[in-house]
Amino acid sequence: MEPSYTIIIADDHPLFRNALFQSVHMAISGANLLEADSLESLLSLLEKSEEPDLILLDLKMPGANGMSGLIHLRADYPDIPIVVISASEEPSIVSQVKMHGAFGFIPKSSDMRALISALNQVLEGEPYFPAELLVDSNESNDLAEKIATLTPQQYKVLGMLSDGLLNKQIAYDLNVSEATIKAHMTAIFRKLGVKNRTQAVILLQQTESDS
């Protein structure tokens, strides 16, 4: 008897989510498929149900910008394999996805056969990254390594800096003191090797410009 898998498809585009739904059913008969259209609905699903065997994650969804959704999930659910499915197929993005602990990367341009093959490989416990997209880029890897050292809270603070929020606003939104935010920022600057918030924001934008 074949094992029964629970898989969450997290993507905010209904048409693509439906296509992925059909593909997964073709790849894995009897799979229990759940759907989420935002990071918030995905986290809510994870809280309510048993941990799934796999999450198929789009990089761009409401509540998730660039790598932030992946980083959040890896921090809170380190044991769940996450495969990123994205229209961003630049080698630098794929390198970052791998660096941040994803179990695989499937381009949205993949045909049905490639998609089914990738899903089967992942469920057999083998990571899937298209060889042609894993070009070694020292600069992007170095950048991804620096970003990967941030804690989820520090990454959240950096994202809010990028949105132009002041320390006071960030402290209010995260329900912490302004001194805590300043401590986070000191740690962020040190880890990223920058001197101020402008440089930190530029660095973050470099990692997310194509994702």
Results as ranks from 00 to 15, higher is better:
H100E: 14
I80T: 08
V84Y: 06
N120E: 13
A87D: 11
E90F: 08
P91Y: 08
S95R: 12
I116S: 06
R113Q: 11
S92L: 05
G125M: 07
I80K: 06
G66C: 05
I106S: 06
A114Q: 15
P130K: 08
P91W: 08
I116F: 02
K108N: 00
H100P: 10
P127F: 00
S117M: 04
S86T: 06
F103S: 14
L59S: 07
M61S: 04
I82C: 05
I85K: 09
S88V: 00
P81H: 04
E126P: 00
P78G: 03
V97H: 07
K108S: 03
N120C: 09
M67S: 14
F105M: 07
Q96N: 09
E126H: 14
E90K: 11
I82H: 05
I106R: 11
G63A: 02
L59W: 04
P78D: 12
M99E: 08
N65T: 15
P62R: 11
L119I: 15
I106Y: 03
F105N: 09
V122N: 10
D111S: 08
I116E: 03
V94T: 04
L115Q: 04
P62Y: 15
S95V: 10
N65L: 15
G69A: 09
L70W: 02
A75N: 13
V97G: 04
L119C: 01
L119M: 12
F103V: 02
E124G: 14
A102T: 13
H72E: 13
I116Y: 03
F103K: 13
I82P: 02
D111W: 07
G125A: 03
D79S: 13
Y77K: 07
A75T: 13
A87F: 13
D76Y: 14
P127S: 14
A131D: 08
F129P: 09
A114Y: 00
A102G: 13
M61P: 03
L115V: 00
G101Q: 05
D79E: 12
G69Q: 04
I116L: 09
L70D: 02
P127Q: 10
S68W: 03
I82R: 05
V83Y: 01
I106E: 05
S110P: 03
M112H: 06
G125C: 01
G104C: 03
K98A: 09
D111E: 14
S68G: 03
E89H: 10
A131H: 12
V84M: 07
P127A: 07
I71H: 15
S86L: 10
Q121H: 13
G69F: 05
G104P: 06
V122R: 12
G101S: 10
I82V: 15
E124H: 12
L73E: 10
P127I: 01
I93F: 00
A87W: 07
P107L: 02
M67A: 10
N65Q: 13
S68Y: 02
A114M: 09
D79T: 15
L73V: 12
